[in-house]
Design a protein around this nucleic acid. Structure first.
Lengths: 194, 194
DNA sequence: CTCCCCAGTTCACTCATTGAACTGACGCGT
DNA sequence: ACGCGTCAGTTCAATGAGTGAACTGGGGAG
């Protein structure tokens, strides 16, 4: 696909990984999925990514088992991270750590907490209160000291993902305000990370 | 540059990081740098990357302070990771872990050891013998159980980086066969990772 | 002077990305 | 039934980046 086939030897798992998630936009799509974005249109508007590209990326990610595509009873389509996709959290975290360290002098842009006890997570995702390696669905993410609040954010989707929330929890869309969206899959069997 | 400018909000360090190292080839260049590749021509032949692209990537990486470009006394040019570049090791490691987990059923393609005591490193880079978080220059990398030995490897550069070696140690090039390349910069003050 | 190595450039070709408009399925209110 | 809005996904012309091969130009060695 994007990989020039000879994307380095087969003997490098880095190269292999990049073949799947190394294309432009892909990791941002996955980040959004961690933040609870699930709908085609939400990915498109939040990332401002051309819909044709989004279609391609989602197709590849589904094909590789990073996402699953769910046609809901309501007719809606949802893309959700599989266990394999959740396994990418350390990658996302490592990128965030690096960016925070070298491009965010005023502190991390997003802080991570253990939802159960409110403890801050260290760079490796361990809760500084209870000492556990926190599984992804128990991670609560919230704006950190380096976050630049643009008073009225942009679209509702961006606003939603900038609100303190647990990872993987679907964003609440202003549409269908009080429907039965309450606790659908809740803590699904999204497997454990890492 | 490659980033469509509106590469998501400024409030995401993931997006910021991807602006620097998210382009095609870039992370492979950095991986090679960790493995001791330093010369323009070596990057080009090992990665089989068009030289024009390599020029662009190196230029950006130098500009961002991920690499430094050294004109040696001998007239040679060397690209080396800065501390900021070494800080990308957790990113590289996370990608390798993921690729090993999901695309290398027979085990990791490259094993990491603590050079001082030979202990294997866990996924977070901690030595299982001494328990320390091993700084990058002390990490020894070697073919693991998932490594596919293609008997006569390809170019000498690929052969070199598939040989057990410490990270950041410059590869020995068949050129100048028995020069004083032995223990040059050794454990440089390349800072500590993470 | 000549040959070779090496970093980097040039250039024509191809292919992916872009952005905007469009399609078609579905659900809802009247 | 009808029209309307939403949503997933497609189409398409224009742009831009990646590709590969050939070329430039400087330095060292014989």
């Amino acid at each position: 696909m994007t990989l020039p086939s000879t994307y380095a030897d087969r003997n490098c798992s880095l190269a292999r990984s990049l073949e799947i998630v190394g294309e432009r936009w892909t990791l941002l799509i996955i980040r959004d999925a961690f933040f609870g974005v699930r709908r085609f249109g939400d990915f498109a508007t939040q990332l401002k990514i051309p819909r044709a590209v989004l279609t391609n990326r989602l197709k590849l990610l589904v094909q590789e088992g990073v996402l699953i595509r769910d046609e809901e009873a309501t007719g809606g389509v949802e893309y959700r991270l599989t266990a394999k996709g959740v396994g990418l959290w350390p990658v996302v975290r490592a990128f965030m750590n690096w960016g925070d360290t070298f491009y965010s002098p005023s502190g991390v842009k997003r802080a991570q907490r253990h939802d159960q006890d409110g403890g801050l997570l260290d760079r490796e995702g361990r809760c500084q209160d209870c000492g556990l390696a926190v599984p992804v669905p128990e991670i609560r993410i919230e704006p950190g000291p380096g976050f630049c609040r643009t008073d009225s954010d942009l679209d509702p989707v961006s606003n939603a993902i900038n609100t303190p929330r647990r990872l993987l929890e679907p964003i609440v869309r202003p549409r269908t305000p009080s429907a039965g969206e309450g606790e659908l899959s809740a803590t699904r069997s999204t497997g454990r990370a890492d």
